[in-house]
Design a protein around this nucleic acid. Structure first.
Length: 315
DNA sequence: TACCAGGCTTTGA
DNA sequence: TCAAAGCATGGT
C-alpha cells in the first residue's frame, strides 16, 4: 500500500460527464482542475487530457468485492474504461440521439455497494449538495481517515458502524425522516453480511439489494433500487424514474402514469442498456429545463468551475 | 413566502 | 389496485 501515480489510455471516455452526472456523491472537481474522490478505501485524483487519464492514488492496490486489484486494472474496472455505452437510439428518437451527443463519454462507475445503498437512501427528496454533505458527515464521524496530498478524506463507514446509530442520533443532526431508514437499512445489510459469513461478491450484493427493496421501511423503493442496480450492481438495463425523468417522459414521449409504468416503458423501449438511455435523457432534459440549478452536468463540465462540495478537507 | 428536491410508505376508497 | 397525503429539512 503506497502512494502511486501514472497515466491510462481512455479513448471515448469523458471523466467530467462521468463524475459530475450525479451518480457519485464523493467526487468533486478542485480549483486546480483535478477530480478528487474516494472509492474502495482509496483516495484518488484524476485528470483527463485528451484521451489520456492521469491519476494519483493513495494506494497502489485496491480491494473490491471482486478481489484485490492493482491500481490501473482497478481504475479500468471502476470507470468501465473498456466498456463503452452501447446504446442505440430507436428510429426517430431525436431526443436520445441529441442526449447521446451532449453527454458523450459518460460511463456508469462501479460504486461500493454499501456506500451506494446508503447514499441513495439518504438522497430521497434532498438536493444533491445536501446529500453530499450528509455523506461527508457520516464518513467523518464513522469512517477511517486517509491523508493524501495535504488533504484529509474518510472511508465510507462499515455497515456495523452505521447500524450502531439510532434514528435519534441522525435526527439530532437534521437528517429528517431519512434518519430511521439509514439505520434500518444499515442493520439489514449488517445482518445479511454476518449471516453470509464470507466476503460478499456481486451475487450476494444483488441478493441484499433485492431484499432491501422487498422490505418495507428500508427506504429502498423503486427509484432507489434502480439506482443501486445501475451504480453498484452491474444491472445496466434498469431505468430509474425520478422527478426529472417523469417530466421528461411526459414532455418528450407522452408517457405518463405511476413511476412503475414509466420504468417499465423505459426498460422495454431501450432494452439491456436502458440505464444509459435513461441517464442521458435525464441529463439532457435537466440541462435544458433546470436552468435555475447550478449542478447541471453538461454546463458544469464545460464551465471549468470547481465543485461547490468537495469530499475532503484541507487542514 | 411558496414551492421543490434524482421518493418512500401508509391510508382509505 | 391505486391515488393522495404525510413525512423533515434545506435550497431557491
Amino acid at each position: 500500500m503506497s502512494r502511486t501515480s501514472g497515466a491510462l489510455s481512455a479513448p471515448g471516455f469523458h471523466l467530467g460527464h462521468t463524475l459530475a452526472s450525479g451518480q457519485v456523491f464523493r467526487w468533486g472537481r478542485d480549483r486546480d482542475g483535478w477530480w478528487k474522490g474516494i472509492a474502495y478505501g482509496t483516495a484518488l485524483h484524476l485528470r483527463q487530457e485528451g484521451e489520456t487519464l492521469l491519476y494519483r492514488a493513495s494506494s497502489d492496490r485496491v480491494v473490491t468485492y471482486t478481489g484485490g486489484l492493482a491500481i490501473e486494472p482497478f481504475l479500468r474496472w471502476y470507470l468501465r474504461l473498456d466498456e463503452p455505452a452501447r446504446v442505440r437510439a430507436p428510429k426517430g428518437d431525436r431526443h436520445l440521439r441529441e442526449a447521446l451527443r451532449a453527454l458523450n463519454g459518460f460511463r456508469f462507475v462501479r460504486q461500493e455497494p454499501f456506500e451506494c445503498i446508503l447514499s441513495y437512501v439518504l438522497s430521497v427528496q434532498a438536493h444533491m449538495g445536501l446529500t453530499k454533505r450528509r455523506i461527508l458527515f457520516l464518513s467523518r464521524r464513522l469512517g477511517a481517515p486517509i491523508d493524501f496530498e495535504g488533504e484529509r478524506c474518510w472511508t465510507f463507514p462499515a455497515p456495523d458502524a452505521l447500524a450502531s446509530l439510532t434514528g435519534e442520533d441522525l435526527r439530532a443532526h437534521r437528517f429528517g425522516y431519512r434518519s430511521e431508514k439509514v439505520v434500518t437499512s444499515a442493520q439489514i445489510v449488517a445482518d445479511r453480511l454476518r449471516a453470509l459469513g464470507r466476503p460478499p461478491g456481486l451475487d450476494a450484493w444483488r441478493e441484499i439489494g433485492d431484499h432491501l427493496h422487498a422490505t418495507p421501511g428500508s427506504g429502498v423503493g423503486l427509484k432507489v433500487a434502480k439506482c443501486i442496480d445501475l451504480f453498484a450492481l452491474d444491472r445496466l438495463g434498469a431505468f430509474a424514474v425520478d422527478t426529472w425523468v417523469r417530466k421528461m417522459a411526459e414532455d418528450w414521449y407522452d408517457v405518463t402514469g405511476p413511476d412503475a409504468r414509466i420504468c417499465a416503458w423505459g426498460e422495454a423501449r431501450y432494452g439491456p442498456q436502458a440505464g444509459y438511455a435513461g441517464e442521458h435523457l435525464f441529463a439532457w432534459y435537466r440541462e435544458q429545463h433546470a436552468t435555475a440549478l447550478m449542478d447541471r452536468v453538461i454546463s458544469f463540465c464545460a464551465s471549468g468551475e470547481p465543485s461547490p462540495e468537495l469530499p475532503f478537507e484541507r487542514p
